[in-house]
């Protein structure tokens, strides 16, 4: 349901205390790549004190913890145990990692699919308990494959497709990989639109200035909202599982989708 997921470094107070002004639907506080090993403890304490003092209604907060096979995993989870967070983002997605996390917590999990193996097993990952979305991590994925990323992104087309299809099949959110050139708005718009057209519901980002464009791309358009309103209205009037509208057959999946569009529109004041 969310359009944008913004990573912010977990040990940087200037970003943390402004997490609600960036207009991202979800904030992912990062304990992993953006925090040096020396400062992992520092970030945990900072976030613990921050979230104990401030709470937010308008933005969901997830935390990207370190992967299950790192020495920080347990400390990360312990530090977050009693805090009001929506869930965890788990890097280096694997069934084993998700199960370990599920043993320690019952909160929603968003795994990052960022290796060829994870991609092969993406359906198993999506089926695990508490998994509410999948993030595609193209940087690590292409690194592991030993290939270069290009503007056209043909090298990640297959991976993107599989992830979007899988998430859709299991009715969870599909979150596209961040667009790494933070100063290229046109490139971002194209990249996000491509992801949308492949079936992604949202996009992750590592820079606040990208959120506006991402929100625009992944929000339902005015035409979509109007169409959805008509479908839902007619379905309520006819009270039938299937009917025709403007000569097109409308069945249950289409009605459900229209409802989702309206929910999203309502959530984001569109």
């Amino acid at each position: 349901m969310s359009r944008s997921y913004l990573f912010i470094p977990g040990n940087t107070p200037s970003m943390i205390q402004n997490l609600d002004v960036f207009d991202s639907d979800v904030i992912i506080i990062d304990f992993e790549d953006s925090v040096t090993s020396y400062d992992k403890d520092s970030a945990r304490t900072l976030i613990k004190n921050f979230l104990s003092k401030y709470s937010y209604d308008e933005v969901e907060i997830f935390v990207r913890i370190n992967s299950y096979d790192s020495r920080y995993f347990h400390d990360d989870i312990n530090a977050l145990a009693n805090l009001d967070i929506s869930g965890y983002v788990l890097p280096k997605a694997s069934v084993k990692g998700i199960r370990m996390l599920n043993k320690l917590s019952n909160k929603p999990i968003i795994p990052i699919v960022e290796s060829p193996m994870a991609l092969l097993l993406v359906e198993d990952i999506a089926k695990e308990k508490n998994v509410v979305a999948l993030i595609f991590g193209a940087e690590d994925y292409t690194k592991e494959l030993g290939i270069k990323r290009t503007l056209e992104a043909t090298e990640i087309l297959y991976a993107r497709s599989i992830i979007a299809i899988t998430a859709n099949a299991y009715n969870i959110d599909a979150i596209d990989t961040p667009y790494t050139n933070k100063d290229d708005d046109k490139g971002l718009l194209l990249d996000a639109t491509n992801a949308l057209n492949l079936g992604f519901t949202s996009k992750a980002s590592i820079h606040p200035n990208q959120i506006d464009i991402i929100n625009q791309v992944f929000a339902p358009s005015l035409e979509e909202i109007t169409e959805a309103k008509r479908i839902v209205k007619k379905s309520e009037e006819t009270n039938k599982g299937a009917f025709s509208l403007d000569g097109k057959m409308i069945d249950l999946p289409i009605i459900e989708k229209a409802k989702k569009v309206l929910e999203k529109a309502k959530k984001y004041n569109l």
């Binding site: 002004v21 820079h207 606040p208 200035n209």
Partner: peptide, 11 residues
């Protein structure tokens, strides 16, 4: 400005 706070104010 590229500072996200500044960008938000401008928006």
């Amino acid at each position: 400005t590229k500072n996200p706070i500044g960008v938000k104010i401008a928006k």
